[in-house]
Amino acid sequence: MRFTSTPRGARLARRLVTQRMDEWGHGYDSALNESVTAIAAELVANAVCHGHVPGRDFQLRLTEARGAVRIEVADTRGERMPDEAEESGPPDALAESGRGLFLVTALAARWGVSPRPAGPGKTVWAECDAMSPAEVAVSS
């Protein structure tokens, strides 16, 4: 789906993710729903704050396949690429920002950045491995 690059667009995207996860059988209070929603919230916030180009929207894609949930957020600002190595270190304890990709790294099984094939910009993606109900019961 496409959203305006505004705080309202980010909020609507986050709500869509948590609702879709519930529709797919991952309840609102499940660990997977909470993790995927938190990752999506960070990625769309980055798209709005750092990837915003006036008059351009960001896109969110959420898919579930082969035991993983994939979140993709595309914006049109290709020159501002997150550095996976740089962003994965712990943030400064007194900093007011800079924790987003650290949180994504902690919650996602893997994440990365790729150029948008259909236009200018980039797609930041993250994947969370979905656990079956049997695996959840064993790990509890």
Rank of each mutant, 00 (worst) to 15 (best):
M1A: 06
R2N: 12
T4Y: 03
S5I: 00
R8G: 01
A10M: 03
A13I: 13
R14Y: 01
R14G: 15
R15I: 02
V17E: 15
V17P: 14
V17C: 07
Q19H: 10
Q19F: 08
R20E: 12
W24C: 01
Y28M: 14
D29L: 12
S30Y: 02
A31K: 14
E34Y: 07
S35K: 14
V36P: 02
A38R: 06
I39Q: 03
E42P: 07
A45V: 10
A47K: 01
V48T: 02
C49R: 13
C49V: 13
H50R: 04
H50V: 00
H52C: 11
H52N: 10
G55R: 06
G55F: 10
R56E: 15
R56V: 07
F58C: 08
L60K: 04
E64H: 15
G67Q: 06
G67Y: 03
V69R: 04
R70L: 05
R70G: 00
R70E: 13
I71T: 11
V73I: 04
T76R: 12
G78E: 04
G78S: 05
M81R: 12
M81W: 08
P82T: 04
D83I: 03
A85G: 01
A85S: 02
A93P: 09
L94M: 09
L94C: 05
A95M: 11
S97C: 11
G98C: 06
R99D: 01
F102A: 11
L107H: 07
W111P: 05
S114H: 09
P117H: 10
P117C: 06
A118Q: 08
G119V: 03
K122R: 13
T123L: 04
W125P: 01
W125H: 03
C128P: 03
A130R: 14
S132T: 14
A134Q: 06
E135S: 14
E135Y: 08
E135R: 10
A137P: 01
S139V: 11
S140L: 09
